[in-house]
Design a protein around this nucleic acid. Sequence first.
DNA 1: TTAAATCATGATAGCGCTACCATTTGCGCT
DNA 2: AGCGCAAATGGTAGCGCTATCATGATTTAA
Lengths: 350, 350
Amino acid sequence: MARKVGRRGGNIVTIHDVARHVGVSPMTVSRVINGEKNVREETRQKVLASVEALNYSPNMAARSLATQDVARVALLYSNPSSAYLSEFLLGILEQSAQSGCQLTIESCDGPEGAASAIEKLKTTGTDGVILPAPLSDSTRVAKALKDLNIPFVGVATARPAVDFTSVSIDDYKAAYSMTKRLIALGHRRIGFIKGHPNNYGSQLRYDGYVAAMAKAGLEVDDSDVAQGYFTYRSGFDAAETLLGRDERPTAIFASNDDMAAGAVATAHRLGLDVPSQVSIVGFDDTAMATMVWPELTTVRQPISDMSALALKLLLDQIRAKRTGAPYTPIREIRDFSLIERQSSAAVSDA
Amino acid sequence: MARKVGRRGGNIVTIHDVARHVGVSPMTVSRVINGEKNVREETRQKVLASVEALNYSPNMAARSLATQDVARVALLYSNPSSAYLSEFLLGILEQSAQSGCQLTIESCDGPEGAASAIEKLKTTGTDGVILPAPLSDSTRVAKALKDLNIPFVGVATARPAVDFTSVSIDDYKAAYSMTKRLIALGHRRIGFIKGHPNNYGSQLRYDGYVAAMAKAGLEVDDSDVAQGYFTYRSGFDAAETLLGRDERPTAIFASNDDMAAGAVATAHRLGLDVPSQVSIVGFDDTAMATMVWPELTTVRQPISDMSALALKLLLDQIRAKRTGAPYTPIREIRDFSLIERQSSAAVSDA
DNA sequence: TTAAATCATGATAGCGCTACCATTTGCGCT
DNA sequence: AGCGCAAATGGTAGCGCTATCATGATTTAA
């Protein structure tokens, strides 16, 4: 239980114990653990068996000390939804525990405030930066980091700029799928609430919606599209425009969950039942989606997977930079999924 | 920037550099850093000055390796609001970076699911556990941990059990203050939405409300109190009971933000304006509070402070356990604050 | 004043791991 | 067989820090 028993003579299993158990040198064990080559397959197997048997787990502190390889990575975020942030953190944490890197969390006020935060990171000696959702689309932030020669990875980057490594989902495809699903449920007039105009991902979502509608031979009337700003309030207002008419859509697709929740509130206020009279769907599957009633049908991103992967890629990049190896930015695309809850239903024939 | 420059000859400032700079032995520097006694005040000052001058910062990896003191602490949580969780994580992370301990995050399904999670922690060799909000009130979980002799600290523990260390706010006092504030705004009939009946903190909040009403000489009518379950939906329904009458209260105090948000939705549906016709206030100041419109007046707990403190206390406790020192559980109470937003207002004379 | 306790500091030896280089082993080739 | 070369393995020396004990400086008690 306790890691310590005395200054020496602890009960912790070390690489030496494994080595003795197998009958090789500690060095060989180290090589196996780190997946280096130049180890005979047979030896490798024996070592792995012993690791298992003795329940050995490497001591991160010793490793980072020996390798001098404690990457200091910072997570720089600006007001994401807290649901997003917490799941993001979960992924990052898991990965960082495995990789034994030192995490710093830094918040800033939008891309503007990022400048000073980045300045600070520089003086602190940060080896790399993770940029979650809103910040990952800021060219300004990307440029600042690049100028400082600090490696970074963007998460949920919508803009398909390939000059830095990023992990995202395909916003276009996701919006396309969701729209297609609504159409399959019998909806013909589907309203859309756009996200913030500055947000590139927001544009992609809209494009996906339009494409799916076109594919089904359905027309998108301008009056069925409302501008939103990703906030609850903006969804509330936008839905008012969309639903406050005689000829209203039977479904509304909001570009994020907060706006969808706002739309649900408006529907209720107008005396419309969700989903029997209007289906309302969101995007992101944040906690908001299950907090409101009825719970929202939405698009789910594997946020914690994505953040974990982002950290891993960042560490690779940092390592490459240190060894002077060439590094080519990667654009990873993860799969999204459609989560169907109670806010959507087939259009009623009434 | 990079932590590494070559196997040796890195540019990192070590304790030796500081020692040389001051003209003492590394050991003395170490002592100063760790705040040990038996160092002459004059020497201490000189060392501290050099630390500052050279911008030295201790290498956690080396320290934990030398002290054999890597505490493995687990954060065990069960479905808290994500807003709560993310802020909680922020506090924990900051503290853990400073203390150089190894964090594991573990989720479980309510107190029931905790059993297996705890079992797992045992085999993994966990030195201590942090228990956030809902779990910290489960006697079952507390007992399981105690039986295993694993130190733990509860956060936002409402039940005033003093047999384990905890960090909380005074739910009673907070509810009392909020109620008093509403009364000061001119409200005389104040409805209350209770939290989950199993939750002790929920009871304290109710008691605080009742006490404040009594203090002001106001009667609490049974029909002005509704049972809720901390969910949006339950707040939605409870508000219906409270507001769906001719003689309705002019304010509603919900035991958490989710229910307050639900209550706001109901008010809107009933055509009541918030706050001019009904004031609605919440508790916790989760992200939910600012996501709905109008934004909620609520009670704020210093969540990240509390979680950071909890980790610190946990580490103390672990250390005490290792050295065999006696340990007395502490019950820390932090200050809450009233956050006034747009969902509450003075009662109108109309 | 002198022995004994106390304090301030230093020297040494690792914590568990891996970088680096030395050595051994295996294997294909002439 | 003997050579060379590469693959496989081992030995050594720290990474930055602190536990421990040893030492010299200072105070206290007697």
